[in-house]
Each structure stands twice: as C-alpha cells, then as structure tokens.
Simulated assay, not measured.
Amino acid sequence: MEYQYPIDYHWSTDEIVDVIKFYESIEKAYEKGVGREDLMAAYRRFKEIVPGKSEEKKLCGEFEDISGYSPYRTVKKAKEASSNEKIIMRN
C-alpha cells in the first residue's frame, strides 16, 4: 500500500519503528493473518509509546482512514481469541 503511517515526530527512531510494526501487524491481519501473540506484543509496545486513550484513538483513526484497516476491531478480536490463534480480519 502507498500511504504514510500516522506517527509523532517527537518519538525516537526506535519508537517510530515499533509503532510502524504495530501498523504492519494490523495490515497482516487483513491481508494474510497474523499470530495473536505477535499482534498483542506489537500492541503492548504501541501502548508503551502511546499510553493515552485520546492519542491512541487519534492515531488509530488516522490509520484506519488512510488504510481502511481498523486497529480497534483487530485488537478487540485478538483480545477475545485464544493464545495460539491466528487473527484474520475481513474488510
């Protein structure tokens, strides 16, 4: 896909890389499926970088607007899944 990920330029390079990994996990869930544990690890790291709910909603909303992929619905499904389950989303 050709779009720019929503990021905060005040983050360190490592933080930007980790947030992009979270977005890529969401993309994988829609495109071919992603392991629940991998997705949840990426989400936990994302939450370390973006601890506030309002900023999380803003960034995830921007990502959904540009990609069509919902981080909220994907993480919700992963939280409800069993530990070794593969998360596969449909548009």
Results as ranks from 00 to 15, higher is better:
residue 80 E to R: 15
residue 74 T to G: 03
residue 11 W to F: 14
residue 85 E to L: 00
residue 90 R to F: 09
residue 39 L to D: 04
residue 28 K to I: 01
residue 53 K to S: 10
residue 90 R to Q: 11
residue 77 K to C: 03
residue 29 A to N: 05
residue 32 K to V: 04
residue 54 S to R: 13
residue 79 K to L: 15
residue 3 Y to W: 13
residue 67 S to Q: 10
residue 28 K to V: 00
residue 55 E to C: 01
residue 91 N to S: 14
residue 64 E to I: 01
residue 85 E to K: 13
residue 45 R to S: 04
residue 87 I to T: 04
residue 11 W to I: 04
residue 35 G to C: 01
residue 40 M to L: 15
residue 32 K to Y: 11
residue 6 P to V: 05
residue 72 Y to W: 11
residue 64 E to Y: 09
residue 37 E to Q: 14
residue 68 G to F: 08
residue 68 G to Q: 10
residue 9 Y to W: 10
residue 68 G to Y: 07
residue 7 I to D: 09
residue 61 G to S: 08
residue 76 K to A: 15
residue 62 E to Y: 09
residue 79 K to M: 12
residue 1 M to K: 14
residue 14 D to W: 07
residue 59 L to Y: 09
residue 38 D to Y: 02
residue 78 A to G: 05
residue 82 S to Q: 14
residue 37 E to D: 13
residue 64 E to M: 10
residue 46 F to E: 02
residue 39 L to F: 02
residue 72 Y to P: 00
residue 20 I to W: 06
residue 24 E to A: 01
residue 13 T to N: 10
residue 83 S to K: 15
residue 60 C to N: 13
residue 85 E to H: 11
residue 85 E to D: 15
residue 56 E to L: 05
residue 68 G to E: 09
residue 54 S to D: 14
residue 88 I to K: 15
residue 90 R to T: 12
residue 69 Y to R: 15
residue 37 E to W: 02
residue 15 E to N: 11
residue 8 D to A: 06
residue 61 G to F: 05
residue 88 I to M: 12
residue 9 Y to F: 11
residue 38 D to G: 01
residue 13 T to F: 09
residue 82 S to C: 05
residue 35 G to F: 00
residue 46 F to K: 01
residue 2 E to P: 06
residue 90 R to E: 15
residue 61 G to W: 06
residue 62 E to F: 08
residue 48 E to D: 13
residue 41 A to W: 02
residue 34 V to E: 08
residue 70 S to P: 11
residue 61 G to N: 09
residue 89 M to P: 03
residue 2 E to Q: 13
residue 27 E to C: 00
residue 80 E to H: 13
residue 34 V to G: 01
residue 21 K to A: 14
residue 30 Y to G: 03
residue 43 Y to D: 07
residue 81 A to Y: 10
residue 53 K to I: 08
residue 80 E to M: 12
residue 79 K to P: 03
residue 63 F to N: 03
residue 49 I to F: 07
residue 2 E to R: 13
residue 53 K to P: 04
residue 88 I to F: 10
residue 39 L to G: 01
residue 43 Y to N: 15
residue 6 P to D: 12
residue 37 E to A: 04
residue 36 R to V: 02
residue 49 I to H: 10
residue 4 Q to W: 07
residue 60 C to P: 00
residue 11 W to G: 03
residue 10 H to P: 04
residue 52 G to Q: 13
residue 83 S to L: 12
residue 18 D to V: 00
residue 69 Y to W: 09
residue 50 V to Y: 08
residue 81 A to D: 14
residue 69 Y to I: 04
residue 16 I to A: 07
residue 67 S to C: 06
residue 55 E to D: 13
residue 37 E to M: 08
residue 78 A to E: 05
residue 26 I to N: 06
residue 6 P to S: 14
residue 18 D to W: 04
residue 75 V to N: 06
residue 44 R to G: 02
residue 41 A to E: 12
residue 14 D to I: 01
residue 30 Y to I: 00
residue 36 R to H: 08
residue 83 S to F: 12
residue 4 Q to E: 14
residue 89 M to E: 11
residue 43 Y to T: 04
residue 75 V to E: 06
residue 26 I to F: 06
residue 50 V to C: 12
residue 59 L to W: 07
residue 53 K to R: 14
residue 4 Q to P: 03
residue 46 F to C: 01
residue 45 R to N: 12
residue 48 E to L: 11
residue 78 A to C: 05
residue 75 V to C: 08
residue 84 N to Q: 12
residue 36 R to I: 03
residue 38 D to Q: 09
residue 15 E to M: 05
residue 81 A to K: 13
residue 80 E to P: 00
residue 34 V to R: 02
residue 50 V to I: 15
residue 6 P to T: 09
residue 55 E to S: 07
